[in-house]
């Protein structure tokens, strides 16, 4: 088969998967809305906490006014929803109940199945998140006035963040091939992500050591960086460097994914599918 055939086949498979997946998730819209509620509540809670702090400190904390916090956590909520993945919760279940085998017997890589699921989930839920975000911006009197170039830079930063977070979390999900109980690992990752990707507080409010760790590790580049970009907290140079770091991390994550995948499948097919 030629490369063009393969690409065409993949596009066809994606289109079909989108169609079924959107139909499926529409059928589960109740559950979906509940998921979404949980996903949105975290940023809203921190938004409330930090605006309260800002007000009690005479209007601003470390240069963040109450309105800045409102803008930060609202944008964070949107970015978090768009970058979020759930596959590492699902893999353990898949492996244990044998639902992984049918995916392996398809002539395309299982990652495509999950990418398509992920994108259709986001497409559907974004329609719920966008009005909530607008409401929050108004209700908390957020100060969000991005310039044109902030918006332009936000788009690639967000897309790269989506790709990076997906690749990292999918690779972590593969741990289910080795571990019978992955919940402890997932929790450790989730906690690290919570603090180091700026979900508890903007990273600049943390001690320098934590900030350095967040920048050296992939966490900042998966969530916080696009938020900082849209809020205009970064210089043009810092944005360009950030995009470069994102691309480098994506390249590394791809290599890791391929490697771990190959080892994982070898193990899966050695110990019993």
């Amino acid at each position: 088969m030629t490369r063009a055939d393969r690409v065409g086949g993949l596009r066809d498979a994606y289109r079909a998967k989108f169609r079924t997946e959107i139909a499926l998730q529409f059928a589960y819209r109740g559950a979906l809305a509940i998921w979404l509620l949980g996903l949105l509540l975290g940023p809203i809670v921190y938004l409330v906490v930090w605006t309260t702090v800002a007000r009690s400190q005479g209007g601003a904390v470390a240069g963040f006014s109450a309105g800045d916090f409102a803008a930060y956590f609202t944008v964070l909520m949107v970015v978090n929803q768009l970058t979020f993945t759930w596959h590492f919760y699902e893999f353990e279940w898949r492996v244990r109940n044998g639902f992984f085998s049918p995916l392996l017997l398809r002539p395309i890589h299982p990652v495509h199945n999950d990418i398509a699921e992920n994108l259709s989930f986001k497409l559907l839920t974004f329609t719920g998140v966008a009005p909530v975000a607008l409401l929050l911006l108004v209700a908390f009197d957020a100060s969000l006035q991005p310039s044109a170039w902030h918006i332009i830079a936000f788009v690639p930063a967000l897309m790269l963040a989506m790709a990076l977070r997906f690749l990292v979390e999918w690779t972590i999900a593969l741990a289910a091939f080795w571990l019978t109980r992955v919940s402890a690992l997932n929790q450790a990752y989730t906690v690290a992500l919570l603090f180091l990707s700026g979900q508890v507080a903007p990273l600049v409010l943390f001690p320098p050591a934590v900030q350095a760790a967040a920048s050296i590790l992939p966490f900042r580049w998966m969530v916080s960086f696009p938020v900082e970009t849209l809020l205009g907290q970064l210089s043009g140079e810092a944005v360009l460097v950030g995009l470069g770091v994102q691309i480098a991390w994506i390249a590394l994550a791809l290599v890791m994914l391929r490697l771990v995948w190959r080892l994982g499948v070898r193990r899966y097919s050695a110990v019993g599918a």
């Binding site: 904390v61 919940s183 906690v191």
Partner: peptide
Amino acid sequence: VQSSVGLVTALAGVAVVFGQTDRL
């Protein structure tokens, strides 16, 4: 492990906030 991590996470969240203020 999970409960301890969860507890420490909650405490750390509070500590981050109180790094910036004395009262909430």
